[in-house]
Amino acid sequence: MHPAFSVIFFTTSSGAGYGLLALVAVASALGFVPASGWFAVVSLGPATALIVAGLLASTLHLGHPERAWRAFSQVRSSWLSREGVAAVLTFLPMAVFGIAWAFCGRSDGVFALVGLFAALCATVTVFTTAMIYRSLKPIHQWHNRWTVPNYLALSFATGGLLLDALVQIWGRPQAVVGIAALVFVAMAAYLKHRYWNFIDTTKSASTPESATGLGARGKVRFLDAPHTEENYLQKEMGFAIARKHAVKLRAIARHSAFHLPFLLTAASLLLTGMPAALAAVAAAVFGIAGTLVERWLFFAEAKHAVTLYYGASEV
């Protein structure tokens, strides 16, 4: 699948933003982050910025961005529509929670509950994003049980790293925030490992034989394409550039998204002051950069069944 930059940026940025929002709300309810209204500004502010930037980027790949509002109408059948509605609905509890905390200094009682509801909405939004991919049967590398857990884990991992960096910069970190980030990064690393293992050891039930229905005669080989040059289908579904470098890119993603953030976060737990804050910030930067590479691979390694009609021998 062609990795459209707008979609890679959207899923990474909004994923991190929703993860940060969810964890800030939960940590605030549990008293693990500073209660000051200013902390609401420095945590929910970046979360909002990441979410909004991602959502705006997601409209860039549309043929008609001005009609994007129509995408809220088909929640009964379409995961893309559900994602749009969930994304917009999340802003309501998020706004109430953020305004009450930032401007009235209230993050307790009913406002904590509103915050927890915002965390739930954020999680649901990431879930709906993942389900868009999970529901596409023609793409074996997406249509499997590892897609949704990976999206959720990476959202919480990047959000957790950001939250840890923020509390470290704030100056009075609680170890539990750093430990939570470590747990989410480790979970994301494990789930990604299982995902890669799954796509390396399994393939789609669809074959050139089932695609043409000619299997009864024996092996089916592609002889001649319909056209001399690549068409839309081959450009959109037949992307193969990053697949060629998949081994290297996976190593980069593993180190940047998981190994380095884990080590840096562990270091920040042991350090204090400026070095701890720097380590935590570096962990978040590597985590997000690594997730961008991971997301690129998620697209580039996905093989669409239509390529069976254009010479692929398996998907």
């Binding site: 699948m1 790949h61 549309l62 043929g63 008609h64 961005p65 009609r67 994007a68 129509r70 995408a71 379409s78 893309l80 868009i132 596409l136 049967k137 023609p138 793409i139 669809s206 695609a211 068409n231 839309y232 289908l233 959109e236 579904m237 669409h304 069944a305 239509v306 009609y309």
Partner: peptide, 18 residues
Amino acid sequence: CIGCKLCSWACPYGAREF
């Protein structure tokens, strides 16, 4: 149509072209 291309991703037969 907003041109999101998701329908072309959902079709294994390559019936839809943007």
